[in-house]
Design a protein around this nucleic acid. Sequence first.
DNA 1: ATCACAACTGGGAGCGCTCCCACGCGCCCG
DNA 2: CGGGCGCGTGGGAGCGCTCCCAGTTGTGAT
Lengths: 345, 345
Amino acid sequence: MAVTRRGMGRDGRPTLEQVAARAGVGRGTVSRVINGSPRVSERTRAAVQQAIADLGYVPHRAARALAANRSDAIALVVPEAETRLFAEPYFSGIIRGVSAELADTDIQLLLTLIRTPKERQRFSQYAASHRVDGVLLVSVHGDDPMPDQLAEMGIPVVMNGRRSSDELVPHVDCDNVGGAQLAVEHLLGRGRSTVATITGPSDMYVARCRVDGYKEALRAAGRDPDEDLIAKGDFSEESGHAAMHKLMRRRPELDAVFCASDLMAIGARRALRELGRSVPGDVALVGFDDSSLARHMDPALTSVRQPMEGMGRAMTRALLAEIGDSGPDRPRLVLPTELVRRGSS
Amino acid sequence: MAVTRRGMGRDGRPTLEQVAARAGVGRGTVSRVINGSPRVSERTRAAVQQAIADLGYVPHRAARALAANRSDAIALVVPEAETRLFAEPYFSGIIRGVSAELADTDIQLLLTLIRTPKERQRFSQYAASHRVDGVLLVSVHGDDPMPDQLAEMGIPVVMNGRRSSDELVPHVDCDNVGGAQLAVEHLLGRGRSTVATITGPSDMYVARCRVDGYKEALRAAGRDPDEDLIAKGDFSEESGHAAMHKLMRRRPELDAVFCASDLMAIGARRALRELGRSVPGDVALVGFDDSSLARHMDPALTSVRQPMEGMGRAMTRALLAEIGDSGPDRPRLVLPTELVRRGSS
DNA sequence: ATCACAACTGGGAGCGCTCCCACGCGCCCG
DNA sequence: CGGGCGCGTGGGAGCGCTCCCAGTTGTGAT
């Protein structure tokens, strides 16, 4: 049996011990240098850093995690349905933001797709045993208890979006009300007189916000929202299609529709085509999400853009802050949305 | 200072020790049960499992990783550009497949986006120190040395796609040649006589395969590939647009185009519209990827579908196998592609 | 010159687990 | 009826790190 080099780790990689030996210092000192403790003289620090460089030392995560009782990893939890429905730009945008923010922290990103209640359960347990330092939650429904569970267990959590207006769990959201207002104001500004809306599922706060923004904008323009002009969808293309048909039956004179998702706008567009209505000639259309689909529609769809990457970044920053201080401040950020004008309106 | 309950972990969660005490056995035995060793009597196993359930014991990952010198985590490495260009269905499809395959293994998925050469470098080092059990590589370019580096270091790797026809690193690919053939045969079968193609960048093997399939199908139909009918793109919409214009200048009589990506097909479509050519009337169009964009084009785009989720699953299975036996068999899978016929052809 | 105190530093203890050696027991063979 | 064998089992050692306490040095005040 070969004798491993003194101080070498099992896998032949240098350990703290070895770095210490090479730098002519003790283990503790090397640890201090690595963790950026100020209580190390400049001389020593330099020597240690040199030794680290010479040896190509990389700290062993697991050992660190065990000793320090932290994992240097955060989980991004995504309901699987999300990766289908909002695949782009939602999902990848968030990931990009999170990943960018993590880039120089050497914290790892764990991706967890949740398919079933069982997996959900399993994840809670997992998180509960401090196997991650914090959790990023995406697309949480109004009745989801997980955020509270985690928060109660003392696990840092940041959600994307809120479940209600008085959301207690720290979160980063975008200004859905404002985005909807922007859309409707724009429609009104282009001289449209009868603006309808196709909404998302009413059990989702985000959907309710967009309706609120719609109504708000109408009121601000001195018009009363008309329930006949509000049709319910579920963010899917099919629901947009059905809702559009319903709207045209109820109010054939409408000349503009604000759809709470691009996908629904696509469905609506199809319905309009079936009815022989032109876009934007007869009916102007505005969507929400600014997905790549919007850009490629014919005519291209005016849409409200959410700063997905920015939200990912903000969530991550908030989570890291929470992990760091464990202070009592629960960040609640609302990022602005933006209207991207294209041919459909 | 409060006395922690005997055997309890720092964070108040039960440890192996505690489970052992409750089951009236030794630590080793509990470990054996958890790791499914056969050398435990049925009686003992039951008792231990009972104790685990009672206590709600969850093994501590870091401790495990440290002691066993494995991490129970695999990394999925994605060049960031990928999340933009092929956001959907490529990226999310792979993730879904990987995640599904990992669901009942309690192996974690680490997502690593690589933006810069520096980050690339950093990841190599990271992987080198056995901080992950294996690596899944996505969208590797022809000149990328990382796969070989990792493989040489003895780190299990599986790539999606190949860098060349004699790729040595284990990989899972889809049948790009076959897919292209399918597309061209289909076009020919619909009576098109002059079939052009818009290719991807020639430094990518996947792009070359698609050209090969194109040529192959033509030859099989008794026609000689004509270089004037082959225009180079880079998978982007803009390049498709430019290439289409070039093709029409060179060969105004062409009546079908096979595009090596949906994005390029969209660009081509736009060019055709600018030139007053109808689709599929004047020119039939086929894309590659079957992205959601294809479904929503007008007319909807016929496209070659790659089994993204299946590839994700296959890659994961291959990687787990490699990690498990570390046998010398280097899996090389090629999954079939499928033509999805829509209005554009 | 002496003492107090701060600034650094070394290294023991221990995180929760796996690995493996050694031990006890029952059984079969000679 | 004794020795051997193998199955189950207990528990020591140790993974590579952080934490922290005790030491060692250097500095300024007395």
